[in-house]
């Protein structure tokens, strides 16, 4: 049940940062993740700091160098139906459209989708797991069908976001505001593996918030998308997925970005597979090599080896469908 908490709704970014720096403060944007966390008592909350009055966090606009700036409070529904995003950054549009359910997409924001807490049922449930204050990861020897096959060490969560893999693939840059002003963090460096710190999922320090995401100019001729596999047709997180952005020129792959969802504690970029592809024609042998590179190093737990098959399948499916 919901705990007692104070609610504040600052009207400036400076005030918001100040409020968020206080002990027990939690940021509220769309609330679709926060309210569940409060209800389940996932973390102690003394105050809920609503960001919804911060006008500068809203909206989508063009950047001078041909890219796009998306405010953190832009809803997933707005992103999914934004014509320019759909045209130039289809991986992001498809990621946003595949998240959650229509109601949740109307309410949930891009910033929230990137910063949401993991869905691991031990983390969310009545278990004192390592990511909370406990000693160990229950998933290690427990019910781990939905857990990580890459990058899990002290904690085996998977990152739940459907938009973050696309943003990593698109080489987006996040703007972070905090007590010491603003800083820029590429999405590829925004997320934190359990080996670094198993109590948080990203680089945001106390009092910091993600204010916007800036997409660089889309490379000419890039093919992109997001393919998500799940148990249910909608309102479900990824069993595994692939966000991609690939440029083929003169019959050869000029540039490839492949980022997996649902398989690791962070959006999982498969750089080895990208390397295999770069400079090659997208023939069957290259695709096969990329598939193998994508799953190399996977360390499945007792119940999630199937994710290796899903990764193989999705990489093959996506690469095969790209016009040579």
């Amino acid at each position: 049940m919901l705990p007692n908490f104070a609610y504040v709704r600052p009207s400036t970014l400076v005030d918001a940062v100040k409020e968020l720096a206080k002990p027990g403060a939690a940021a509220h944007a769309g609330g679709t993740d926060l309210i569940g966390c409060l209800r389940d008592g996932v973390f102690d909350t003394k105050s809920v700091v609503s960001l919804t009055a911060l006008k500068e966090l809203h909206g989508v606009s063009a950047t001078p160098d041909g890219g796009l700036r998306i405010g953190a409070l832009t809803t997933l529904a707005e992103i999914a139906r934004h014509p320019e995003i759909a045209k130039l950054y289809p991986a992001l549009a498809q990621g946003a459209a595949s998240a959650a359910s229509p109601q949740l997409r109307n309410q949930g924001t891009l910033g929230g989708n990137i910063c949401q807490r993991p869905r691991c049922w031990y983390f969310r449930g009545d278990f004192d797991c390592a990511r909370k204050n406990g000693e160990f990861c229950y998933a290690e020897n427990g019910e781990n069908r939905y857990h990580a096959i890459f990058g899990g060490e002290t904690c085996h969560i998977v990152h739940p976001s459907d938009t973050a893999p696309a943003l990593v693939a698109l080489e987006a840059v996040a703007t972070v505001a905090g007590p010491n002003g603003k800083r820029k963090v590429p999405l590829g460096k925004f997320f934190v593996l359990p080996a670094v710190d198993h109590k948080r999922e990203n680089v945001l320090a106390k009092g910091e918030i993600l204010t916007e995401v800036v997409l660089p100019k889309a490379p000419e001729g890039a093919r992109g998308g997001y393919r998500k596999m799940r148990v249910r047709g909608v309102w479900d997180f990824a069993l595994a997925g692939l966000a991609y952005s690939v440029v083929v020129k003169g019959g050869k792959v000029e540039r490839a970005r492949l980022v997996l969802s649902g398989v690791a504690p962070i959006p999982w970029r498969v750089a080895e597979a990208e390397k295999v592809l770069t400079g090659k024609a997208l023939d069957a042998a290259t695709v096969k090599a990329a598939v193998e590179a994508a799953v190399a190093g996977a360390k499945p737990l007792a119940e999630n080896a199937y994710k290796i098959d899903l990764v193989r399948a999705v990489v093959e499916e996506v690469l095969t469908a790209i016009p040579k």
Binding site: R119, W121, F127, Y138, E143, V231, G233
Partner: peptide, 28 residues
Amino acid sequence: TEERVLDRQTGKMVNANWHDYKIPTALD
């Protein structure tokens, strides 16, 4: 889609909520 999951370590139900316990949606 539907399946109760009990944690083998504690005997507690890990998917006792409407997200993790998956009833079919309109798209199923």
